[in-house]
Nucleic acid binder design. Structure first.
Length: 539
RNA sequence: GGGCCCGUAGCUCAGUCGGUUAGAGCAGGGGACUCAUAAUCCCUUGGUCCCAGGUUCGAGUCCUGGCGGGCCUACCA
């Protein structure tokens, strides 16, 4: 029942410092898309990795008394530890120091060379080792230093380097943007790139001399391939370009590259030009997400996340304390993926308690505990009950389709809002309207055990729908919701299409949720006691 | 200097092609309920849609000019 392949990537990260919540934002957004596509039956591949062929890697390794390779391997282990904790479902993790990357890289650059798009040129310029970029006079600050790294002296570098004829691809890029408006998303990033390319592209230096770490230019071993040319190629070497033709043919071209908005031009101008030159098909889309800033709760200041400001939040701290689902939910609901977002503990706690603990978690708790209390967990006769009442007020198939559309457009916050307002609120409202506690109470005039049973079957259906819809965002909670009752379809087969269509029950429904020792439902998201979190808010 | 985006309720944000009385969540106020994690449900207060012009029968939406905020880029990297 495969619906075709879906290949998506995240930007590869510099392993100079540990991942922070901003880095995590991108990976979560990519993972939601990957999980959603898998759920719908696509042959999905999510590729991530680290960008290791940089001068800073050598410096950091030296400072720690290590060789570069053991250093980057250990950093890769640390990154994967964080991604695993966040339940990022990557299928492969490429390190650019790997042999498969070198082989594919060299093969690719040779093809570009053979196509006549690489030439040698002598130049002299100031080089910033912090940015690993050459700087023009106009970019310098008053002390004639790089504004990003004012503590470093710039190096006057004079050497012969190889250049890629980026300039010649300008017109073709503009044609491509016009013919494929979806290629650069969101819209504002696209406008920026169009204007940049219209203003004219320069040829770009793609090699460095005298580096000991990195990939050799195949026809001239005195030169190493320079950062960007090397880094971008991970997207194809990571699925077997030059080493595994079958895998490459299966997944390329990428359906979407997820990147930070700061590196849009490399992905939307340089990368397509490189691919054209080497005769490789272009990716279908580049999605540039925004940045996450920190809101200082005492001053209300919004600040960048940086080591020098000392405001780096370890994703693992939040995950260990509140769960990966809680972490994922906050960023997907509170930070629009295409724009910037901000993090503060107060907002995190508000979203957690309100949306996760109260609306979602408590809907599950009250449903299961009523089924236990009134029917000892056994909903006899549920096979013959059609749960048509709970979603009678909404057009569920239309809502599900709308949610799917929002996820496909990476409008995750909008998708979650729909799930909460349309589906979960409807469930809670249904309980208030039906008042099952009256239906189950022998002394009351409303007493009607059969009606109560019907309500419970409807609620079990509501939980089923909720579990399916939150699955890409909250994999753990979704599994717990779905494990609440003995639904006939294995969760792995529960696509969005099945959300709006109740499966045929092979046996009556019964509670299968794990219970505490005193027979109660385990809360999905235990509430955060704000009074018990004094230090967290100051962070 | 050139360019892009944003400015809507106390807060975070929707608002489609210009079309009725500008919406949601949270927060605030009032009420109901007791299955549930003091949850949930109902009602409700709250807006100079940044400002000034313009186009139009009609502008939050389009145009011009300001103000404020963010970002990209800046005469060979």
């Amino acid at each position: 029942m495969s619906r075709g392949k879906f290949f998506l990537t995240t930007a590869i990260d510099y392993p100079n410092s540990r991942p922070h919540i901003g880095t995590a934002f991108e990976k979560i957004g990519a993972d939601v898309q990957a999980r959603y596509r898998r759920q719908q039956g696509y042959d999905v591949r999510l590729l991530m990795g680290n960008d290791e062929n940089t001068i800073k890697v050598v410096e950091r390794a030296e400072a720690l008394g290590l060789e570069p390779k053991p250093y980057v391997d250990d950093m890769a282990r640390q990154f994967r530890e964080v991604w695993d904790a966040l339940e990022i479902s990557y299928d492969d993790f490429i390190q650019t120091s790997e042999e498969r990357h070198r082989i594919g890289c060299q093969q690719f650059i040779q093809r570009v060379y053979d196509a006549g798009d690489i030439y040698k040129k002598n130049y002299e310029a100031l080089y910033c080792e912090g940015c690993e970029e050459f700087k023009t006079e106009s970019q310098l600050n008053a002390e004639r230093r790089c504004p990003n790294h004012p503590q470093r002296d710039l190096k006057l570098v004079q050497e012969e380097n190889y250049f890629f004829r980026l300039s010649k691809y300008g017109p073709r890029l503009l044609e491509h943007y016009a013919a494929h408006p979806e290629f650069i998303q969101p819209e504002s990033r696209r406008n920026e790139i169009v204007s940049l390319v219209k203003s004219g592209l320069e040829d770009i230096s793609i090699s460095r001399r005298d580096f000991t770490w990195g990939i050799d230019i195949p026809w001239d071993a005195e030169h190493k391939i320079y950062v960007w040319f090397d880094a971008l190629l991970n997207y194809i070497t990571g699925i077997g370009y030059g080493t595994d033709p079958a895998l490459f043919a299966r997944y390329w071209p990428a359906d979407v590259h997820f990147i930070g908005k700061d590196i849009t031009r490399f992905h939307c101008a340089l990368w397509p030009a490189m691919l054209w030159s080497a005769g490789v098909e272009l990716p279908r889309q580049v999605f540039a997400h925004g940045f996450v800033y920190l809101k200082n709760e005492t001053t209300d200041e919004v600040q960048k996340i940086s080591k020098s400001l000392g405001n780096v939040i370890e994703p693992l701290d939040i995950v260990r304390k509140f769960s990966s689902d809680a972490f994922r939910y906050y960023f997907m609901r509170e930070c629009p993926f295409g724009g910037d977002g901000e993090f503060s503990f107060t907002r995190f706690a508000g979203s957690y308690n309100g949306d996760l603990a109260n609306n979602l978690g408590n809907l599950f708790s009250r449903t299961v505990s009523m089924a236990l209390r009134y029917f000892e967990g056994q909903l006899a006769g549920s096979q013959s009950i059609a749960p048509e009442e709970i979603f009678a007020g909404i057009d569920l198939p239309a809502v599900v389709a709308e949610i799917a559309g929002e996820i496909e457009d990476c409008r995750y916050a909008a998708a979650l809002e729909l799930i909460w307002r349309q589906v979960l609120d409807t469930g809670n409202r249904y309980i208030e309207e039906q008042k099952p506690w009256l239906l189950a109470s022998p002394g009351k005039p409303e007493y009607d055990l059969e009606a109560c049973r019907r309500v419970m079957v409807n609620l079990a259906e509501g939980v089923r729908v909720a579990a399916i819809l939150v699955k890409p965002f909250l994999p753990d909670a979704a599994a717990k919701l779905y494990a609440g009752f003995n639904y006939p379809t294995p969760f792995a087969e529960a696509t969005f299409a099945t959300a709006a269509r109740r499966p045929v029950l092979t046996e009556d429904l019964r509670v299968t949720a794990p219970l505490t020792d005193d027979g109660k439902v385990t809360p999905l998201f235990p509430k955060i006691d704000l009074k018990a979190e004094p230090a967290a808010g100051k962070k």
